[in-house]
């Protein structure tokens, strides 16, 4: 691991990270640690520490956040936000961090396999459409219940759904993620310890 120098730190990091303006009040953090105490992931994986992640961002440490796999542990249950006395939406922060990580070329391995669902939903207008065998099961279940064999979405709606993803450049963005070469994550942790320094 390369050394981290304070000249690399960026005091405005918290503004840059919040690119889509979904957290808004990160600098109000009291460092009380309620987010971490409540967090079910932190209870299992002590190296995952929401309070420390906020602290690092506010201090401006750029190196240790985006290329570690800590930000890919969150289950987005929002218990952190529910306990937060100043209403910082840590789940939104995690999403922003993931956007930033992908932009800097880290962590594609976590999203690219899942993107097949997005491409599939473009064909059907709804998500989680199963494959051939799963489809037979669903159609039988639904027919037995006396409802239409598969939830219907009109062709126009599917076309418009897909057009929205095309016109906002989202599909292109995801295609690009697929072909980008991924920079390896520098740090990974297990049970609270760094394992591949």
């Amino acid at each position: 691991m390369s050394r981290e120098y304070d000249r690399d730190w960026d005091p405005d990091l918290y503004k840059k990270i919040d690119k889509y303006n979904s957290v808004k009040n990160l600098e109000q953090c009291l460092q009380c640690g309620k987010c971490t105490g409540n967090c079910p992931v932190a209870a299992i994986t002590p190296s995952y520490n929401p309070r420390a992640i906020i602290n690092d961002i506010l201090a401006g440490s750029t190196a240790r956040i985006l290329d570690s796999d800590e930000i890919w542990r969150c289950m987005k249950c929002g218990t952190c936000y529910r306990g937060c006395p100043v209403d910082i939406s840590f789940t939104s922060l995690i999403l922003e961090l993931r956007f930033a990580a992908l932009e800097s070329g880290h962590g594609q391995k976590y999203v690219v396999p899942a993107n097949k669902f997005v491409f599939r939903s473009m064909e059907y207008g709804i998500n989680f459409v199963p494959g051939k065998r799963g489809m037979e099961r669903v159609m039988k279940l639904r027919s037995d219940m006396g409802v239409e064999p598969f939830p219907k979405v009109t062709p126009e709606a599917i076309e418009q759904f897909k057009a929205i993803f095309e016109q906002t450049q989202t599909l292109r963005y995801m295609e690009k993620l697929k072909t980008d070469t991924e920079k390896p994550l520098r740090l990974s942790y297990a049970e609270g310890r760094i394992v591949n320094e």
Partner: peptide, 21 residues
């Protein structure tokens, strides 16, 4: 109404695309 599509929340949650879509 069959004109209603997916809320697109779940796909946004795991695919790392920005929120515009």
């Amino acid at each position: 109404d069959p004109d209603q599509t997916c809320c697109s929340g779940a796909v946004a949650g795991y695919s790392g695309y920005p929120p515009e879509a």
